[in-house]
Amino acid sequence: MFEARLGQATILKKILDAIKDLLNEATFDCSDSGIQLQAMDNSHVSLVSLTLRSDGFDKFRCDRNLSMGMNLGSMAKILKCANNEDNVTMKAQDNADTVTIMFESANQEKVSDYEMKLMNLDQEHLGIPETDFSCVVRMPAMEFARICRDLAQFSESVVICCTKEGVKFSASGDVGTANIKLAQTGSVDKEEEAVIIEMQEPVTLTFACRYLNAFTKATPLSTQVQLSMCADVPLVVEYAIKDLGHIRYYLAPKIEDNET
């Protein structure tokens, strides 16, 4: 038996919005420690890793480890039926081929439940090695989303260059070039508005805007975003989900092709 209850359907909605652009379907791995999801997009350029800890739920019970393959489009459709303040409960029997999603209004007067068929997905799990990143940048999530959106107008790819002075995002295309520099915040009054850079050595990497813009769909989940970079290693973009866990996106860099 698996049962997980969240006080606010809006969090689940936001989580779905944050992953459904990249993934059509994914497997939710449930255990007594919580819910995990790891999946690559179709072209295997980016990876989504979602962790929801069991202690973050209002109620969480998972007797046996359970893998639920879901069509995220269908899941999003169901979640659209919930009001933001509704309680949401996910339920499944052991070895079940369906999952039940139940919404209860705050005043307990309306209860709706939806049953969704599960899918058997072949899972390719990737082992992600621990990396000592050369640069870790924390910045307001809104700011990052804005930068990605703005630079996407100029080019398909954006160059992120991180030094001790600050972090620079640049793009160049047929129209011209664009550069956005962010300096490290001097005095931290409001933590959520700060730009903080921890740097071992400077890094310059190139990434596809399309994927970065897909990642920023997670912006409503968190006030801050953390970018971890290291030469020749995928970028990690992490959004914390308050009291519940986090969502991490991995993105393979673009490289100069010397071979041909």
């Binding site: 480890n65 990737l126 082992g127 596809a208 995928p234 393979a252 100069e256 092709d257």
Partner: peptide, 23 residues
Amino acid sequence: AQTQVRLDSFFKTLPSTPNATNA
């Protein structure tokens, strides 16, 4: 154009998830 690398070239596929094997 620069070449986009795939994640597979950085991360190795695990043989199978413990969950799946258990199931």
